[in-house]
Design a protein around this nucleic acid. Structure first.
Lengths: 138, 138
DNA sequence: TATTACTCTACTAAGTATATAGACTTTGTG
DNA sequence: CACAAAGTCTATATACTTAGTAGAGTAATA
């Protein structure tokens, strides 16, 4: 299941994409529009900023804005950032790989093979969908 | 990520499948063979029993045994039982459906549509793989 | 220089995962 | 019948994660 953090991130990114023309957008505006706790949203937007997806401007007239075009931000990127690994096992994760403790050989482990298939099927969707696909207009 | 409970369940089911000819198997034997805490494994086997996948016999000469053939037990079944929903959102879950609070219409929600695709891609693997596919011999 | 708005650190509460302990019940066998 | 073996059930503990709150700090603009 996706965490609220991840869902909020998608909501915020959609809002920013839909209002790209308005320049910097207040956290407050996103929070009230999408009904998200402002303080909680702050930390999410900060994560997205540190990842290079968003930019920000302090002071009066400040706020957050997209650094990338909506079609450049894949859902996989956002999910990995805020939700963690997409794979079901650490030993099949592309971005969060960890050797699995029990199995002797990944090459001959049936579980490993099947979980690779699950991962690839999932990625075939979320690597090819972007924030552009989330917004209703066009 | 799959929980340890789920992974232990797969290990236990594999062991039971590989030793089907031996009749009832002691929890203790599975636990030591697969290096799982015996007490923890007890609750897992109990869940599998309540779901009708395993049978048990008490007293001397007792133990657990498969009620279904390995090829009849899909991975999806086990994952839903011990890990919970396979879908990434409650509103796209087939077995744990819950209406989503924020979105107005599931029919027009882009997120909903994409998450259905993820679910279906995942299910295409785990609904068609069984405990038989986990065991090495044949 | 005052206000605005993002940034950072710390904290709390609730829930879930991963066990552990021990009493209880059922069953086979001598 | 009594005993031991083995599954069943309930309660508890501990650590980790999630979700959210509070408040001080910093930078930019008018």
């Amino acid at each position: 299941m996706l965490s609220k953090k991840t869902k909020y991130a998608f909501h915020a990114l959609s809002y920013l994409a839909e209002n790209q023309h308005k320049g910097a957008i207040l956290i407050q505006e996103i929070a009230s529009s999408k009904k998200i706790s402002q303080k909680f949203l702050e930390s999410i937007l900060l994560d997205l900023k540190k990842a290079g997806i968003l930019g920000s401007k302090k002071g009066k007239g400040g706020g957050y804005y997209l650094l990338k075009q909506p079609e450049e931000i894949t859902l996989a990127r956002v999910i990995r950032l805020l939700n963690g690994p997409i794979a079901w096992l650490p030993c099949v994760s592309l971005n969060f790989y960890e050797k699995c403790s029990d199995c002797v050989s990944e090459a001959t482990c049936n579980m490993h093979l099947i979980m690779c298939q699950v991962r690839d099927q999932t990625l075939s969707v979320v690597e090819n969908k972007t924030v552009r696909d989330l917004i209703s207009s066009n």
